[in-house]
Nucleic acid binder design. Structure first.
Lengths: 243, 243
DNA sequence: CGGACATCAATTAGTCATACTTAATTGACG
DNA sequence: CGTCAATTAAGTATGACTAATTGATGTCCG
């Protein structure tokens, strides 16, 4: 078999490594429910379908197994596991699901998670942030102010993501810090989903500035309160979009 | 080479599949800092060290790569990534780290995460729990009461874990529900770490009963308050143990 | 006659060894 | 200082073999 085997569907995924390509096609297919839980896939089938060797197919299955998306058993095959077992904190899985059908549900779950985590992270940040982190926070808050008018949603989004990432990192809690990517995905998803021609609400911008101020002044409770309002607004927004 | 190649260290890990055995030895070694970030491993070295074929070693590396513990590059080898990139929400990674050196730090991070998530989960549970979930909650709260005296910490722990798992599931939020395992690991770790000869504090038991009551009555704010007290106590406990 | 239990064959993942390809890095040479 | 070739280690393919599981078959005993 030629080693230049091309990907069957000319998907946009141009990952390096054949196994990554198989993964980029099979993973989303599973999270999208294309192969519902209980479905049995055979390694050789997969190898044939994607025109790769069994070795490559097996490596892709290994990764899916480590995400608890599938289970591989002898004499049975590769079984798709029920949704409850999926490792939904895996950034890869999150990405796949956000790109797929239950994007709405996923966005909702993640936004609720944000509403739990970010206020606490803001309080911790107020207590633990370094001067550098305070500066970065202020900078991004000001960046949001500057880009909040005049159809600059893309630039606004950059600052928004950086702001929340900085807060999460400034909490100096490893678990919180790691949620920066998740929040970035949610914010991006929200911006793409919303009507793009409206500028962000000024109250939201003000609240971000307030968080930055409170963190700088070491005022934990105020930082927490302001951030809580931000995340509650985010949830309210979602409910308006799809009640 | 014989296909019955035994594991080099007679570790307790009797995972099925050679790749799983390699993983069970190599994963903890990395998270424990035995191979500090920047270290370069070679697939062939690994294959030799664990007396397995390159194929098997590669599959283990693939999984570690999907956890962002290592990165595999041509002509370079398998590089251990810096801690900040590790997928710290992967249950496997959590388990490895809890078993290793920075168990304390890990326990602390996770407890802070709990303090953010569980109160919110309790509030949602009060709003969304089904009668079955309410019943399970009450049952486990009563179980905690029954086992809170007389050196029955093991049985107490079972109910404690089940209680928190039920709350998280009853929140009907996928992300929260998936943290049941994490909380279980934390609670188990705490019990093993603490002095085992003291019964749990009665206030803690009472608070769990209050959460169950509040959820049953649909009183979100009260459920949230009681749970917040529980998680704050858990953090205070940690501070006492290692300030 | 019927049910429990032992046996066997078919099936599919798991493992290994080997040969070859590809990409990145090094360093020698122009 | 840019270029190109040699080197290196991962990536891929293939074929042969192993081992576990399961479902069917058959046997023995109640």
């Amino acid at each position: 078999m030629t080693s230049q085997a091309a990907h069957p569907d000319g998907g946009p995924a141009r990952e390096r490594g054949l196994h990554a390509q198989v993964l980029a096609s099979l993973g989303p297919a599973i999270t999208a429910g294309e192969h519902p839980p209980g479905t049995v896939l055979l390694t050789e089938e997969l190898a044939a379908r994607y025109e790769v060797s069994r070795t490559v197919a097996r490596e892709a299955v290994r990764v899916l197994e480590s995400m608890h998306l599938v289970e591989s058993r002898r004499r049975v095959g590769v079984t798709v596991l029920p949704t409850e077992q999926w490792n939904v904190y895996d950034p890869q899985v999150i990405t796949w699901r956000l790109a797929g059908a239950d994007r709405g549900r996923q966005l909702r779950s993640l936004t609720v998670l944000r509403s739990a985590v970010e206020p606490v992270a803001a309080r911790l940040a107020a207590e633990l942030a370094t001067p550098q982190e305070c500066a970065a926070l202020t900078e991004h808050a000001l960046g949001m102010v500057a880009t909040s008018r005049g159809q600059q949603l893309d630039n606004y989004l950059v600052h928004d993501i950086a702001f929340h990432g900085t807060v999460l990192r400034a909490s100096h809690n490893e678990m919180f810090a790691r949620l920066g990517d998740v929040v970035a995905a949610v914010l991006t998803g929200r911006t793409q989903h919303e009507v793009m021609f409206s500028d962000p609400r000024q109250e939201a911008v003000t609240l971000h500035v307030q968080v930055a101020e409170a963190v700088r002044e070491g005022d934990g409770p105020r930082a927490e309160r302001a951030m809580r309002t931000i995340t509650e607004d985010a949830m309210a927004e979602l409910d308006v979009l799809a009640p």
